[in-house]
Design a protein around this nucleic acid. Structure first.
Length: 633
RNA sequence: GCCGGUGUAGCUCAGUUGGUAAGAGCAUGCGGCUCAUAUCCGCAGAGUCGGGGGUUCGAAUCCCUCCACCGGCACCA
């Protein structure tokens, strides 16, 4: 039997689930459900990543062991997936005993093959943060995260020799255009791979700093770097969570669905790891886009993080699932807003689909007492449209073009609505002699709706089941109905069941009642203003440029010495608009209390105010002569 | 800065290898129907296909250039 293996990333167990997690996971769910209907043997995997510093720290703060902490946190995801009707076949946790065994076995194998070697490693370590930084990452010689001092540490670590697979990976991507999708992401990865030599990957962390991880089998002083451990879940799950039947392996996966932020990790780290193991690469890695909310980046500080539980509570699982995949092309970024969601629900789901089902069942009830009539002929056009959709869906879903698949389905929705209008069954119902035509019409619509319900099932399983149940056929979805979707599956004589509105229209008033809205007005008033005391935190000073010179190797960075009552060295990115000579003697406005930063190795102890784009820049300068050092307010 | 991408009706976007493709959905206006969740169906708008130049018998679709925006990397306050 044909197999189909799809994965989501394993989510960091510390995270609070948001719309992004839902997006990836529902995408995988749609593929899984669709492929089951095609009669394929499906393994759909999701799970959690539970090792690493943050988990260890969070657990410590709560006075729990890391595992106890993870056991609690993992419920966030498990509950959400249940709520979202996710049909995952397994849920992997990187703390699973079996996973750990597989990871250790693989580490051992790579070590013995000489793919992992021990090397001295030099870096700057921030003790309070317990993490390493490279020279470049340092800000003013301090930890870029907390600003505290770092110490240079030299220690031995284990490296995976990733660099030697650089060329092989480039060739693989070139030969397999489907390997990384969408295309623009593949270009990025290629650009990344071709622009510079790939380094080796440090895959160990000494236990003196991090204990919450998988111990290296060949050196128990170290644990494994979390990514190395995490990526292997895709394989380890096939060894103990996938249905074990016969010799056939579930590996390689058909699709790894990931967010664009972790594409490099998958496209480069994971791919080369597999190469080193002489294992086949997955058939496809698909990086999808991000959701903004009301046009803004989602962030905790803005308070606009979309809580999936809330959306589902207010608008329903299926509406949410539908919106995510109809509104935006999978792979591009999209914008989530309650307005957009409600528009989709009302126009596509309530008006088009829901109303179609409703009017059709109503007619069947009125004209045939809710019994499926026996047709005397087949409407060939509708039949062939209905039957042909599965092929196009298949094609579109192979490249994860969910939107296009939905468009195909909605062709049938609109065709059926038109058909009803043209045939005007209500007129026929008035003249009893036309009863056979009336039967044909009603049967055609009902059967069309049966097809629709099957097609929408991967996207909206709950609604699909409601419709099928009204048609008395809810069991049919348990079989691979799309393997051979034939017109005429609906049996004449079947008693139709009553059904409420599939997708009730949402009125403006209801929308307001649905609690926390993401309506523009409120957010603007709440978040676009800062208080005067917040502004006062910015210490702006008039400064006089004393010296200016270009920073070697940089196109637009200038090093300035500015007098703001004291001499400051400021690095400014205005080298394209100003020459050093014309700057000397100029009065400028400097943010004097900006945290120092290092640019091109030169420390900048402030920032010049300037307006404009990259090429067209104007420095802000006081209109009259004022002494250097005075405060701007 | 380098690399990649985008710029098409009010909005969101489709537009294979250049030639009846200037399109869809939503929104708007008008008309029709009444089975239906004030739903459905039909018709309409005219957008110099970012600007300019070029190739061609012919370009939204190829080439050059400019502008704007986005993404990746890099030296991103």
């Amino acid at each position: 039997m044909e197999r189909f293996y799809v994965t989501t990333p394993i989510y960091y167990v510390n995270d609070t689930p948001h719309i992004g997690h839902v997006y990836t996971t529902v995408a995988a769910d749609i593929l899984a459900r669709f492929n089951r209907l095609l009669g394929r043997r499906v393994f759909f995997l999701t799970g959690t990543d539970e090792h690493g510093q943050k988990v260890q720290k969070a657990a410590q703060e709560r006075g729990l062991s890391p595992k106890e902490h993870a056991d609690i946190m993992v419920q966030n995801f498990k509950t959400l997936w249940k709520r979202m009707n996710i049909s995952n076949d397994a849920f992997i946790r990187t703390t699973d005993k079996e996973h750990i065994e597989v990871v250790q076995k693989i580490l051992q194998r790579l070590y013995e093959k000489g793919e992992i070697v021990k090397r001295p490693y030099k870096g700057w370590y921030c003790t309070p943060d317990e993490r390493f930084w490279t020279e470049k990452e340092l800000v003013d010689g301090r930890c870029p995260d907390c600003g505290r001092a770092v110490e240079e540490i030299e220690e031995d670590n284990y490296f995976f020799l990733m660099s030697k697979y650089q060329d092989a990976l480039i060739r693989h991507i070139e030969k397999n255009p489907q390997y990384i999708l969408p295309e623009t992401r593949r270009n990025e990865v290629m650009g990344f791979l071709k622009s510079r030599p790939l380094g080796d990957l440090c895959i160990s962390r000494p236990k003196k700093r991090l204990t919450w991880g998988i111990t290296l089998p060949f050196d128990d002083e170290y644990v494994t770097y979390v990514w190395f451990d995490a990526l292997l879940n895709y394989y380890s799950a096939t060894r103990y969570l996938a249905p074990q039947d016969g010799e056939v392996s579930w590996w390689p996966a058909d699709h790894h669905i990931v967010g664009k932020d972790i594409l490099t990790t998958h496209a480069v780290y994971w791919s080369t790891m597999l190469m080193a193991l002489d294992m086949p690469l997955p058939k496809n890695i698909f990086a999808h886009g991000w959701w903004t909310v009301d046009g803004r980046k989602m962030s905790k500080s803005l308070g606009n993080v979309v809580d999936p539980f809330e959306v589902v509570e207010n608008y329903g699982v299926d509406s949410f699932r539908y919106f995510l995949f109809r509104e935006v092309t999978f792979g591009l970024d999209g914008d989530f807003s309650i307005n957009a969601l409600v528009n989709r629900i009302n126009s596509d789901l309530a008006n088009d689909l829901g109303n179609l089902v409703s009017r059709c069942l109503a007619m069947a009830r009125k004209y045939f007492d809710s019994v499926v009539p026996e047709p005397t002929l087949t409407e060939e056009e509708i039949k062939s449209l209905a039957e042909s959709i599965v092929d196009r869906m298949k094609r579109h879903l192979e490249t994860l073009s969910f939107q296009k698949a939905l468009d195909e389905i909605w062709m049938l929705v609109s065709t059926l609505n038109k058909y009803i209008d043209t045939k005007q069954p209500w007129s026929l119902a008035k003249s009893p002699e036309d009863s056979s035509e009336l039967k044909n019409i009603i049967y055609t619509i009902l059967e069309g709706i049966r097809f629709l319900s099957i097609y929408i099932y991967p996207f909206m399983p709950e609604s699909a089941l409601k419709i099928l149940s009204a048609l008395g056929m809810e069991d049919s979805i348990k079989k691979p109905v799309l393997k051979e979707a034939k017109w005429g599956g609906l049996r004449p004589g079947t008693k139709l069941k009553k059904m409420g509105a599939l997708f009730p229209r949402i009125t403006k008033e209801q929308k307001k009642e649905k609690g926390k809205s993401t309506d523009e007005e409120e957010i603007v008033s709440e978040d676009n203003y800062i208080r005067i005391d917040e502004f006062a935190k910015v210490d702006l000073r008039i400064g006089k440029v004393l010296e200016a010179e270009r920073i070697q190797g940089s196109n637009k960075l200038l090093r300035l010495i500015v007098d703001i009552g004291e001499k400051r060295q400021v690095v400014a990115g205005i080298g394209k608009a100003y020459s050093p000579e014309e700057l000397v003697g100029k009065l400028v406005v400097v943010v004097s209390n900006l945290k120092p930063a290092k640019l091109m190795g030169v420390e900048s102890q402030g920032m010049l105010l300037a307006a404009g784009t990259d090429n067209e820049i104007a420095i802000i300068s006081p209109e009259k002569d004022v002494p250097a050092g005075v405060r701007v307010k």
